[in-house]
Every structure is written in C-alpha cells, then in structure tokens.
Nucleic acid binder design. Structure first.
Lengths: 251, 251
DNA sequence: CCATCTTTTGAGAGTTACTCTCATTTCATG
DNA sequence: CATGAAATGAGAGTAACTCTCAAAAGATGG
C-alpha cells in the first residue's frame, strides 16, 4: 500500500503509533487507524509544502487516497486534523496516578512535565516535527489557534475534575473552574511563546516557569495595599478557600 | 419615536449609542454607524427568533436592509457581528487611569469592575438583553465561543502592556504573558459560568471572586510540601519575580 | 465457502460563509 | 454644479462542510 517508490513520504505511515499493540485490533479497527493517520500525514505533508490556506480538503483527500467524505467522517473540521490530541487522556491518567494529598499545582507540574517529556524526549524526530508544525500553525493561523483554545478548555474541565477530587469541592465550582482555565490558558500561552520564538527555548523549562508564575502569583510585595480602589464598595467576595492543598471535603 | 409601524423593532435603532456625541460626525460617518448598528440589531433580532445556526447572513442583510456584501464589509465573520467589543479600549483607558504604584491585580479589579458596571448598571435594559444573548451564545455556539476567546487574547496582550508599564518588564516577557492570559481566561470563564447558570449570580461578584482566586492562588496551606514530585529534578526555574507590585524598572 | 448482516466508503448534490471584481450610487469639496 | 473619493450592490466564484443513498468490505453463523 502506499507505493514507496514515490520517495516523497518523509515518514513511514504505518508502524508509527502502536507499532505492535495494534496487532490485537480487528482488521476493521486497524484499517480505521490507518486511514486516520494517512489523512493526518497527508495533511502535514501538504501544509508543509504549500501552507495551510492553500491546502484544500480535496487535496488532502486525494493525497491520502480517500474520498473527501471520508476525511470529514474522521475529522469534523479541517483544523481538527491538525489539533486532535490523544493527549488529554494521557494527562488525566498521569494526574490520577499522583498521591491524593499532593498539592494540585505539583501534581499538574508533574503530569504536564511527564506528558511533555513523553512527546519531546526519547521520541523519534518526526514527532518533534509534527509538534512544531502544529504549534507553528497555532501561532500563524487564527482558526487553528481557536480550535486549540477550544480543545484546551476541554483539558480545563478535566483539570476541574482532578481538582475537585482532591479538594472536595464541586467540579463546577466557580473557583475551581476559574483556576483550572487560568492554568491551562497560561500553559497554552507558554507553548505559543515557545513557537513564536522559533522553539529556541526548552519547553519544559517554559512550563516550569509558567507554573512557578502561578504559584508565586500571590506573593505580593510587603505593602499589602488597600483591597479595593476608591469608589468601589468593599464587596464581600466570599473569599476563595484554598485550592492548592488538600482541603476537608465539604460538610 | 420608536414606532416605525413595523412593530417588530424591539430597540430604536438610531440614537442608541452616542445619542448626541454623534452629531459632530460627518454624514458619512453617521451613516456608517447607523448601518453598523442596523446590522447588529438585525442579527440579534433574528437570532433571538430563530437561533444562531438558522440565521443566515443573507437574512441578516435583508433584515438590515443592506446587501450581503455590505454585511461582510462591516464584519469579517458572522461571529464578529455578535462579539465585537468596543470594550478593550475602554478597559485600556481605565487601566491607564490608575496610579502607577497600585498593584496590578487591584488596577485590573478596578478597571474590570468599572467597565462591567458601565455595561450593567445605570444602563438601559436592552443592553442587558444584548449582553445576555451574547454570553448565552458563547456558551451554546462553539464558533462564537472561539471568537470570544480570540478577542480575549487581544485583551490579554493589552493587559501585557499595562503590566509591562508598571513592572518595568517587557510586554512579551513569558511571565507577563502567562499571567495576563491566565487572568483574562479566568475572567472569561467567570462570564461563561454566569451565563451557564442563567445569570442568577451577580457578575460583579463573580468577577471579584475570580480575582480573589487569583490573588489567593499561592496561599498554600501550612504544610508547604515538597516543591517537586519524585522523579522530577529540582529544575532551576529562574524564579518569577514579583508581578503584582511595582518593581524597579530593569537595570 | 457461502449467505447475511453491519459498518464503512464513495459519489454527488446542496448549503452557506466568505472573497473578489466592477459598475453604480452617494457623500465631500471647491 | 462639477469633480473626486468613498460606500454600496450585484454577481460570480471558492471551499468547507452536510446529507443521502447505493456500493464495497469486514464480521458472523452455518
């Protein structure tokens, strides 16, 4: 399949993910996986050659040797071909694997570090390539960035559940949600920063700095100024209880 | 004055914004403003009746009595008709009006409060209506939410500049960007929360709680656990200097 | 191996958001 | 009122999706 004589295939399509674990799938499932990655690879290839806008779904379909309908069956939008992340489940597992009494930020740091490391270290080069292409597109193509933000908000809800588990708060608590979304947005911003500066920095370091920023957020300088500006009533905000550490389950 | 005989115009199209200040604009500018709000009003009206997806740009054009081309001349995308915010400049002004030695979070709290208050308090009811429709669409229509996130990231960059001004850091400093984006994302999440729960809460209160969450973020519980999980090297993140308070301009 | 059932695929027609171009109208200005 | 500039409308074109239906291919039981 796929000819091999064309000499334009930068990456062996099959045997990329799940090189042996896929043996145990039914023929149907295996084929589905194959077309899925075929579509994705075709997309990356074409975009690398001609850019994002210039690449139409029709071309992608042709390059992947499927029909346009099939492309849309596998990916709801063109951007999804690029963004889709089997990444969330991974982070979720990693998060759950941490001791329940560890401060949330530390668990997150660990999980992110781990999942990043798995994508960045001891991993073949074409994965790097893909990651760079992907993040580069996030920077340059608004539609892709939007999609990334959407998917990020899914990660946010995931984080909400994790936080809820540990703190005994509800997953849809305002403070929990706000905290989770703030965090994942910050992390996305760090990745964009990374891409914008041509991947010169070490992503893991950027992630660390981002999380540190979050941790140090409230270390305000000695002059703990007035709580509210003039003209604004004291406003009895029901002070947000600690999120970081383990908290007693709500009574 | 509002009659118009059609009896379906819920809001007097003209004389809504800038009731007198627009007197001093040229006829052309006044007309442009008029069609702009005509398009927006038409959109709100139609969406309220038939929902977002069911409302086509063609219908909007017809309802606003302009051609489809004109609609796209005024708003690059359908979502922009809903999201467009003259809001950023307002916040920017408010931010700049604060004393330079005030902690950033307090300035932000004040600016957001103010701009929210201007949209929520002592303001006619149809503005409330619009805001609810808008935020409701953010919740229910992915495309609109995406667009909102995009525009939010613009607000983020604005915040970056403000923070940079005060702390002497660069506006594209990682810590600054990460902090700013985290904050605006959190605020957006608060608004979504507000909409999701049918506007039962007081937005200003939600905003306060959100900002408080950010301020209290690092107030970790007494047991200041180990900084890093097992298996992760200490990682010398170049500790993020204070962002909150005024800092000496970089040497 | 065949027959049947289910899932996947392809083909094609249709919708809609958006773009581009050009002629016409409408305001601005002397 | 004449001339130039800006805004508009009309229309053709593209590309991302959606829907439907019939053909192909894997699964399953005999």
């Amino acid at each position: 399949m796929k000819d091999m004589t064309t000499a334009r295939t930068p990456v062996p399509d099959a045997a990329r993910r799940l090189p042996e674990a896929e043996r145990r799938l039914s023929l149907r499932e295996r084929k589905k996986l194959k077309t899925r990655t075929a579509i994705r690879d075709a997309t990356y290839r074409l975009i690398k050659e001609q850019g994002y806008e210039a690449t139409t779904v029709e071309q992608i379909a042709e390059e992947a040797e499927v029909s346009p309908s099939t492309v849309f069956r596998y990916f709801p939008t063109k951007e999804d071909i690029i963004i889709t992340d089997e990444y969330d489940v991974l982070v979720e597992d990693l998060l759950r694997s941490r001791p329940a009494d560890e401060p949330v930020l530390e668990s997150v740091r660990w999980a992110i570090r781990r999942s990043m490391a798995m994508q960045v270290a001891d991993t073949p080069d074409y994965v790097h390539e893909e990651m760079k292409l992907r993040t580069g597109l996030m920077v340059s193509v608004p539609a892709v960035r939007s999609r990334a933000m959407e998917s990020m908000s899914v990660t946010g809800r995931l984080l909400c559940r994790a936080i809820a588990d540990r703190t005994g708060r509800a997953p849809d608590d305002l403070e929990v949600r706000v905290y989770a979304m703030g965090l994942v947005s910050a992390l996305l911003e760090a990745v964009l920063y990374w891409a914008e500066r041509d991947y010169r920095d070490d992503v893991l370091n950027l992630v660390d700095r981002t999380l540190s920023t979050f941790r140090d957020l409230a270390r305000r300088p000695p002059d703990d100024g007035p709580d509210h500006g003039p003209g604004v009533p004291p406003g009895e905000a029901p002070g947000a209880p600690e999120i970081h550490g383990p908290a007693a389950p709500q009574p």
